[in-house]
C-alpha cells in the first residue's frame, strides 16, 4: 500500500487518558496486569496434571492463589482468571482457556479509606474485617459487573468491562469525592 496508510497497529489501554485519580487519601490507577486468561475446567479434570499445567492451585470461591505477580483469581462458578503470565498450552487439555487480556479494565484503589469509598458502590462488606487480604468477590460496582480483589491491607484490584472503563472511573471518582467530603 502507499506510504500514507499505517502498516502496523498501535495499542491503547482501557483507561487511557482517564487515570490516575488522587482524591483525599485515595488513589485510583490503571493496573498493567499482563496477560489475562479465563480458565474453566472441563468436568472433573485430573488434579495433578491440571495443577501442573495451571502453575497454581485452582482457587476456591471468593479466594485467589498467587505466586509473586502471578495470580489465579476466582471469578464465578467453576471459573478463574489466570493473571500475569501466558497460560501453558497443556492447560487447554483440561480446561477451556480463553484470552481475556483485552476484555477488562484493571485498576487499583489504594490508600486509607478504600472500604468507605467502595461502600458507596459495592453491596458486599469491603472492610478488612470481612474482606481480608486474599479475598475476592464477583459482584457489582455501581451498576457494573465487577471483580474486586483485596491484594493488600489498603489496596484493591478492581476489574470491570473494558467498554465501561469510563463509567468505572466516573463512579470511583464520585465515591472518592463523597468520602473526602466527610473530612
Amino acid at each position: 500500500m502507499e506510504g500514507a496508510c499505517v502498516d502496523k497497529l498501535t495499542q491503547t489501554t482501557p483507561c487511557a487518558g482517564l487515570l490516575p485519580l488522587h482524591i483525599g487519601a485515595l488513589t485510583v490507577a490503571e493496573a498493567n496486569v499482563g496477560p489475562v486468561a479465563s480458565v474453566t475446567p472441563f468436568s472433573s479434570p485430573p488434579k495433578a496434571a491440571f495443577k501442573n499445567a495451571l502453575g497454581l492451585p485452582f482457587p476456591a470461591p471468593n479466594q485467589f492463589t498467587s505466586n509473586g505477580d502471578v495470580r489465579c483469581i476466582w471469578v464465578g462458578q467453576g471459573e478463574a482468571f489466570l493473571i500475569g503470565v501466558a497460560p501453558k498450552p497443556a492447560l487447554g487439555k483440561h480446561a477451556a482457556v480463553v484470552d481475556q487480556s483485552d476484555a477488562w479494565a484493571f485498576v487499583t484503589l489504594s490508600g486509607a479509606g478504600g472500604a468507605d469509598a467502595l461502600a458507596r458502590l459495592v453491596p458486599v462488606d469491603m472492610r478488612l474485617s470481612a474482606f481480608g487480604v486474599g479475598a475476592t468477590a464477583r459482584t457489582q460496582l455501581g451498576h457494573m459487573n465487577a471483580s474486586i480483589t483485596r491484594i493488600d491491607e489498603d489496596s484493591y484490584l478492581i476489574a470491570a468491562f473494558r467498554s465501561m472503563a469510563g463509567t468505572l472511573v466516573h463512579d470511583l471518582r464520585t465515591a472518592l469525592e463523597a468520602v473526602a467530603a466527610r473530612g
Binding site: 474453566t40 472441563f42 468436568s43 477451556a96 480463553v98 481475556q100 483485552d102 476484555a103 468491562f161
Partner: peptide
C-alpha cells in the same frame, strides 16, 4: 449438567 462444555463471553475481548 453432565455435559462437558465451558463458555465465556468474549464480546469485550475482540
Amino acid at each position: 449438567p453432565e455435559w462437558s462444555v465451558a463458555f465465556t463471553s468474549v464480546t469485550e475481548q475482540w
